[in-house]
Simulated scan of single mutants.
Amino acid sequence: MPETFPVTAAVELAVVERSGFVESRHSGSAVVLAPDGTTIASHGAPGAAVLPRSTLKPLQALACVTAGASLGGERLALATASHSGTERHVAVVRSILEEAGLTEDDLGCPPAWPGDSAARDEMVRDHAAPSRLRMNCSGKHAAMLLACRASGWDTASYLDPSHPLQLHIREVIERLSGERPSATAIDGCGAPVHAVTLTGLARGIHRMGTSSERSPFALHRTAAALIAAVREHPWTIDGPGRPDTVVIERTGVFAKTGAEGLIVMVAPDGTTAAAKMLDGSSRAASTVALRLLERAGAVTTADADRARTDLGLAVRGGGQIVGVIRPVV
């Protein structure tokens, strides 16, 4: 059976400190690429395969645009999001579907409550039911449907791994990661997710983050536009006060979290960090990736600390701050 790296190959990446006592440890693997794409730091087993989960979304969104989806600005940024389901997010997803001549019913992602507590409370007060539009992957799915419409592909089967769109997505992943996926699984939203190494994932995101909108190649122009769109509209990729949005707003770093403890970040200079927490927890992922970029000189300590202040890393006891979740790499 395909699998990721074992416990024996992992290294400690972060600890949870309470009243001066280390009560929990997060182990995993991580890798840092320099602006020129060379590996400058390696922890654990970054050469082992991982399921990238939502950290794959930038590559999936890129493939949707190169397959014909007409997306720009907030709509392009939201195509790569794991959004919190606010009304603002939902409005953008609806606009993508409307351009495709489709509705919420055409989305293949499952109905869900929004991650944003205010939006959820409002839905409860209105006696509303979970919605496919509120599911955090609805922007990705809407972009996939728009790509299918543009290319004349069937929309009902767009999540089938053998569908032309999914085959195109796989080709883009292979091209940018430099790897052939070692396995294909079904993500939580129902879309195919392809296993690549953590280094391969970092390479793919690095190539997007260092692309130029003046490139002679359409793939790289689109990649640059996508990264720029997310940095210009950081609320789209996650939500107000949520980790990826906080990191982008405070540091200018492109950040994308994935389920099961995955994270990728690309600094403005192209330095790229990717990490996988082996226990599947994401609570330390952002601070670990920030520390890796900080140690590489791509993010200032002041900016990293400013982001950490708003990342919910404080450990509380009796209503008081008694500790912190901190990186140890």
Rank of each mutant, 00 (worst) to 15 (best):
P111K: 00
I169G: 02
P52M: 02
A223K: 00
A218N: 05
A195N: 07
V50P: 03
G72F: 12
E17M: 15
G200A: 00
M208S: 05
L293V: 09
P181N: 07
G44W: 04
A143M: 07
R25E: 03
L146R: 12
A224K: 07
D269H: 06
G261V: 04
S117D: 14
L165E: 10
S95D: 10
I248T: 15
R94L: 14
G188K: 06
G239Y: 05
D154A: 15
S286W: 01
T222C: 14
T199A: 14
G204H: 02
P130M: 15
L145F: 02
P161A: 04
T55K: 01
L51F: 13
A150T: 11
S24P: 09
E104A: 12
R306V: 03
M277F: 05
G28S: 04
H163L: 11
G261C: 05
R134I: 02
V324K: 11
L78K: 12
L176I: 04
D238I: 04
A259D: 14
L278H: 11
D310Y: 13
S19F: 12
A91L: 02
V50W: 03
G188P: 10
P130Y: 00
T236K: 10
R214S: 13
P164Y: 01
A45G: 05
L159V: 13
R306L: 09
R308H: 06
E260P: 08
V328Q: 00
S157P: 07
A314M: 15
G152I: 06
P216L: 11
A225W: 01
V172Y: 02
V315D: 12
E104F: 00
D244R: 09
E171Y: 02
H141Y: 08
V196K: 12
P268Y: 08
A273G: 04
V90D: 07
T287H: 03
T197E: 11
I227P: 11
D279G: 03
P35I: 04
F217A: 10
F254Q: 13
P114T: 05
C189I: 04
T210W: 06
A224Y: 08
Q60D: 10
L159S: 13
V328R: 00
T55Q: 07
E12F: 01
V322N: 11
E17S: 11
G252C: 14
A302D: 09
G115E: 02
P111E: 07
L76Q: 12
V11S: 10
R231N: 09
F254G: 09
D106M: 06
G139R: 08
D187M: 04
A129P: 10
G44C: 11
T251S: 05
G200I: 01
A284E: 10
M265Y: 01
L107R: 12
